[in-house]
Design a protein around this nucleic acid. Structure first.
Lengths: 161, 161
DNA sequence: AGACAACTACTGCCTAGGCAGTTATATTGC
DNA sequence: GCAATATAACTGCCTAGGCAGTAGTTGTCT
């Protein structure tokens, strides 16, 4: 593969007009806005994730959830502790495989996952994309996906040594 | 201001094709790649930030740095503790204003800020943007900037109550 | 059957950021 | 000049994720 076009060089690297800077800032601001709105419902920005994933069947167990969300299994264990304390999930030891603990939403957890979480996320995203045409929206998605694919390939190469 | 076009609705919110999801994933992956490459030089993904900002005159003091990077002043204090322990910066109490502590890079810190950091960041970004045309690159930046402006306005409204 | 590998949940220990204070210093307003 | 206010750095206490290691359980291979 030929060396790709170089948008940045180490010599004159300026933070302000770097894609990385914009990307970080945007993610940070969106997170903060979500955090603020979730707080009214007793949730943090990080806690809606497990709820939604469990609800969608992509987090049957802790290990499953860790894989789905790309989060460390240790971090997942502690996150589940916190949202279990809040009464949003229940842990049930599996009978088939006594290593695994099956995750289930409580009524309150399911309500949050079904109503509050999608509402807040959709709201923040719509406001973030205010003034975007449908074409611009699609292109934005496409550019993000392509960048994600590029960085994903790096991961693969790194692990395949 | 009329209600903007709605790209998402709470009813049928799907994680996978959400801009928010893509944004988070991309930022996460880029961070991890940067983290991996910085590690060879004894730095973490978070630690290059203060070095670069101090070098560029946007972090003369801790408070200054906190404002520039949009990071909590408490977090900045502790971050400075860590990179001071590594011998990358020095803290010098100001004579003019005895509240403030002026920040200065050590030789090692300056070397990292001047060579290693820009090199790694430019490298990761170039590979992330592999295959992008100049037009696509510019549009990507423009879309990110517009989204950032939208979310910034929300912040302002929230605080001006 | 028994050794071994693989997997699950979990536990320390680390970095990292947010929020609510505290103390010392500087600025202001009267 | 002095009290009120603002600011700088810092400190607990919280959430949160990464890495390395542990105990218990399951599957595999001979």
């Amino acid at each position: 593969m030929a060396t790709p076009k170089k948008f940045y060089s180490a010599k004159n690297y300026k933070l302000e007009d770097s894609i990385g800077y914009l990307l970080r800032m945007l993610t940070q601001q969106v997170s903060r806005e979500v955090e603020k709105r979730m707080a009214e419902h007793g949730l943090t920005d990080a806690q809606w994730k497990p709820l939604l994933f469990i609800r969608q069947g992509r987090g049957e167990t802790a290990a499953d959830l860790a894989r789905s969300t790309c989060i460390d299994t240790g971090a997942v264990t502690r996150m589940l502790d916190r949202i279990e304390d809040k009464g949003l999930i229940q842990r049930v030891r599996s009978e088939q495989d006594r290593r695994v603990v099956n995750l289930a939403l409580t009524d309150e957890g399911r309500q949050l996952a079904d109503k509050v979480v999608p509402d807040v996320l959709a709201g923040v995203l719509n406001e973030t994309l205010a003034g975007f045409s449908t074409a611009e929206y699609e292109q934005f998605k496409s550019l993000l996906q392509r960048a994600l694919q590029n960085i994903g390939k790096l991961e693969d190469e790194g692990s395949a040594s």
